Amino acid sequence: MAAAAAAGAGPEMVRGQVFDVGPRYTNLSYIGEGAYGMVCSAYDNVNKVRVAIKKISPFEHQTYCQRTLREIKILLRFRHENIIGINDIIRAPTIEQMKDVYIVQDLMETDLYKLLKTQHLSNDHICYFLYQILRGLKYIHSANVLHRDLKPSNLLLNTTCDLKICDFGLARVADPDHDHTGFLTEYVATRWYRAPEIMLNSKGYTKSIDIWSVGCILAEMLSNRPIFPGKHYLDQLNHILGILGSPSQEDLNCIINLKARNYLLSLPHKNKVPWNRLFPNADSKALDLLDKMLTFNPHKRIEVEQALAHPYLEQYYDPSDEPIAEAPFKFDMELDDLPKEKLKELIFEETARFQPGYRS
C-alpha cells in the first residue's frame, strides 16, 4: 500500500510507478496490472468513496492506442447498470505532455475469474450472474457493438453480487458484411471463450460470437473449470467437437473457408456428449439454455433477447427493466489503419471533457 500523499506533496508512487492523480484522489492501494497499465484503488475526496484507477501508458504502440481509444469512446457513450462506466479521466493539459491516461471507475471487490478459483456457486448465484451478463449484453448488442472478449476476468463483482462487464478494448461495431482481413492475426481474445466460426472463417462476425462466450462462462460457473481449455488453435476446435459432436452437413455448409471445411470433413465422426453427463448436478433449465448458447452453427445460436426470456431466468426476466441503447454506435473511421500519432490526438480530444474549465 502506498503511503497517503500529504496535501501538495506531488504524485504518489505505487510499486515504483508514478500515479499522478492528486489532489482529488489519494490513499492509493495496488490492485493489479494488465498488459499496459496498473490498477489501484484510491480515495475520492470529492465523492467520499474509494474508486478504481487504471493507469494506461499506450502511446508507444499502435495496438494499445487503438484499444484505449475504443474503450474510452464506447464506455463514455454507454450507460447501463451492468456495464462499468467511466467516472473521470485524468491526463496532462497538453498533448505533448500526455504520456499516461488515468481512467477512474467504480471500485468492484472482485471478478468472476477470482471468485470461481475459490468458491463453488449455488444455482441461485449462477442464475443471477447469468441474468446480469445477458442484461448488459442486450444493451451492448442493441448499440450494434460486439464485445468480443467476454470471459470471467472481464466480469466485475461486488459483495452485493452486482455484476458489471468491463474491458471493451477489443470491441467492434457489428459488421457481418465487412471482410476484416487479418482478423485472426489481430484477434487476441482469450482462445477458450472463442466461437468456432472465428477459427473457421475470417469473413465478418456477428453478435452470436458473444453468446458463445457467455455459454462458455455459464459452463464454467457450473463446474469451476473452463469447458474448452484448448492449448492452441486446432486443439481448441477438437475440444469443442469432442463435446458438441461432429457438425451436420448443414452446419458445414455455413463454413465459407474450404480449407477449414475440408479439415472438419477429414475428422472421424464424434457423438455429442449429453450435458447432464458433463454437469450431473446442474439445473435442467440451465443445461437447456447452455445447449442453445453453445450451438456450433452461429445462425442457430440463441440471441440475447431470447436467452433473457428463457425459463431458467424467469424469476428475473423483465423486458421493461432491460434497457437498450438510445442509438446504434458508430465509429467515424476504422481505427485499425491509423498511425499511433493520430490515435493519440483522438484520445486527447475524447478525454477533453474531463479537463478543468472544459467548454463543449
Rank of each mutant, 00 (worst) to 15 (best):
A4T: 13
A5R: 13
A7T: 11
V18D: 15
V18H: 14
V21K: 03
V21Y: 05
V21N: 09
P23R: 04
R24C: 10
N27S: 00
I31L: 15
G32H: 05
E33N: 02
E33Y: 02
G34P: 00
A35K: 14
A35Y: 13
G37C: 15
M38A: 12
M38K: 15
V46K: 14
V46Q: 08
N47E: 13
V49E: 15
V51P: 13
A52F: 12
K55H: 13
I56T: 12
P58M: 15
E60D: 15
E60H: 12
H61K: 08
C65P: 12
T68N: 15
K73M: 13
L76P: 05
F78I: 15
R79S: 14
R79K: 12
E81K: 13
I83C: 07
I83A: 00
G85A: 12
D88Y: 14
I89W: 05
R91Y: 02
T94G: 06
T94W: 08
I95Y: 05
I95F: 15
Q97N: 06
M98E: 04
D100K: 12
V101N: 07
I103W: 06
L107G: 02
L107M: 11
M108C: 01
T110H: 05
L112V: 11
Y113S: 10
Y113G: 09
K114Q: 11
L115E: 01
H120R: 10
I126N: 11
C127W: 00
F129G: 02
G136C: 08
K138T: 08
K138E: 09
I140M: 06
S142W: 03
L146W: 05
H147W: 07
H147E: 04
R148M: 10
L155M: 13
L156R: 07
L156D: 08
L156C: 05
N158S: 14
N158R: 10
N158K: 15
T159I: 11
C161H: 03
D162R: 03
L163W: 03
I165T: 06
R172F: 01
R172D: 01
V173P: 04
D175R: 10
P176N: 07
D177Q: 11
D179H: 08
H180C: 05
L184P: 04
Y187E: 04
V188P: 04
V188Y: 02
A189S: 14
Y193N: 15
Y193S: 04
R194Y: 05
R194K: 13
A195C: 08
A195R: 10
P196N: 06
L200F: 08
S202H: 10
T206E: 09
K207F: 09
K207V: 05
S208L: 06
I211H: 11
W212D: 08
S213I: 08
S213V: 07
G215T: 07
C216Y: 13
C216H: 06
I217D: 06
L218E: 09
L218M: 15
L218C: 07
A219P: 12
E220C: 04
E220T: 07
M221I: 14
L222T: 03
S223V: 09
R225S: 15
P226H: 14
P229D: 03
P229H: 14
K231A: 04
L234W: 04
L234C: 02
Q236S: 10
Q236E: 06
Q236M: 10
L244D: 01
E250P: 03
L252N: 11
K259W: 03
A260M: 00
L265M: 11
S266P: 01
P268D: 04
K270P: 09
V273G: 00
W275R: 15
W275T: 06
L278A: 08
L278K: 11
F279Y: 13
P280S: 09
N281W: 04
S284E: 06
L287Y: 13
D288S: 01
L289H: 03
D291P: 03
F296Q: 04
N297W: 01
P298H: 15
R301I: 13
E305R: 08
E305L: 06
P311Y: 04
Y312E: 01
E314A: 08
Q315M: 00
Y317K: 04
D318M: 02
S320I: 07
D321I: 03
E326T: 02
A327I: 02
P328C: 03
K330D: 03
M333P: 09
D337P: 06
L338E: 04
L338Y: 06
L343G: 07
E345A: 09
L346P: 00
E350T: 00
F354A: 04
Q355V: 13
G357T: 01
S360T: 14
